[in-house]
Design a protein around this nucleic acid. Sequence first.
DNA 1: CGACGCTTTGACACAACTCAACAACCGTGG
DNA 2: CCACGGTTGTTGAGTTGTGTCAAAGCGTCG
Lengths: 244, 244
Amino acid sequence: MSIGSAFAMKLNAFIELSPDELNFLAKIQARSLKMKRGSQLIQEGQVDHKAFVLQAGWACSYKDLPDGRRQIISFPIAGDCVGWRDFQRSTANHSFSVLTDALVSPVQSADILECINDFPRLGVALIWAASRDEAMVVERLVSVGRRNAMERTAHFFMELAERLSLVGLATEAEFECPLNQFVLADALGLTAIHINRILRQLREDELITFRKGRVRIHDLNRLRRIAGFCDGYLSSRNQGMLQA
Amino acid sequence: MSIGSAFAMKLNAFIELSPDELNFLAKIQARSLKMKRGSQLIQEGQVDHKAFVLQAGWACSYKDLPDGRRQIISFPIAGDCVGWRDFQRSTANHSFSVLTDALVSPVQSADILECINDFPRLGVALIWAASRDEAMVVERLVSVGRRNAMERTAHFFMELAERLSLVGLATEAEFECPLNQFVLADALGLTAIHINRILRQLREDELITFRKGRVRIHDLNRLRRIAGFCDGYLSSRNQGMLQA
DNA sequence: CGACGCTTTGACACAACTCAACAACCGTGG
DNA sequence: CCACGGTTGTTGAGTTGTGTCAAAGCGTCG
């Protein structure tokens, strides 16, 4: 049986799913909506917010400050859950927008509860996914708090490469990345102008080339040293610490 | 019946707990360990890590970088869960230390599962607590990424005041805070020296005085404006889905 | 063709860091 | 009781990483 969705593919990398479990995942993703690039799925403070699974395309979650500054929290990609964290909260506490044209499946909280009750292994897999999402936020806090612009940017692209390859959207050294420099800046706590300078430096140092929506990684090992990247928090296997 | 523990008190602010539920909470906290100030509960990468409830005292969770830099993620206080996020992971992905002498109750993952099965309302309350913890990490990411040193520090103390008052450890305008300037720096992504200057400015502007482990808030409204603080992500009121 | 979204570059400003020194406080032991 | 070392707080002077402002380049699309 083929895995089907990116969501199933990701969970399947954590525990091997039975046909029944795959069916259930297919069922809750049966209905899906096309979203136009730039449209908003959830607005911070919204009362009747939903939850989604992102089937295809890129999204971002973020918080706006009153004066226009914003911080991007995460970039959900194919197979990722959107807004599940707040599913028992009355109001959403961050906003979600899609960055590209995208395909999303709305999910009812009833589905989530049913899943946990009828398919406990799937429930565990969902908890794993949630804990992985949180680990990514933590890792980004570390980046923004304690890594300089170069380290931070390198770290970000390595994490992205790892996540994308888990759902079959990246090869060893290359992947599509539809993020512009303003978006990168808001994610990494920098300005777009400074991101531009850093990207130039990464290119000149023959570490990463990022042009026209495509990232090419030239020297993985040197990059890993610079970024201080350990993939333990992302991967389902081999969760041990790597050497410094 | 009295509430008993800070943990119960916090959850009780979210949903009113029945005597049975309170009993269960008391049961899992029956055993507790005294920890000496500075000792470590969990080390990043540790394989046989446990989970805890912090009964009294202050702790912190953090990640170290190979070169000695570190980022503090959160400050668990009385009533908070420690290490629950990773309870189904094979290795811990951040470290925990206690900052003061403290009292902790070790919790088995079996207890957590039993809780969810036998006391579903309690399970929901735990999910609420977890989602609140994550919201705090997110809010800190916003601070470190997009607020300047003054805003960040003000925001931090306001959040702390709110959390402490929920477990009865803060009055309107004053609370104990055993954090030194190095610790504050590692939490806020600044240096201890700069924290010192910011604290001086907060004092001179008659906003906050922080001396000898005691924080006094002088002008809550002005502070809230500076920090851009909204307590929605912390508060237990006005969270729906569980009116019954 | 012009308009627009995004990238690139330079000159300059400033918030936060570094280094260096000293002061205040605290527990310990003589 | 004081002397002491260690930890924490305070301050100043100079440096640097990143932000700000301004302008130009370059595709793409209507």
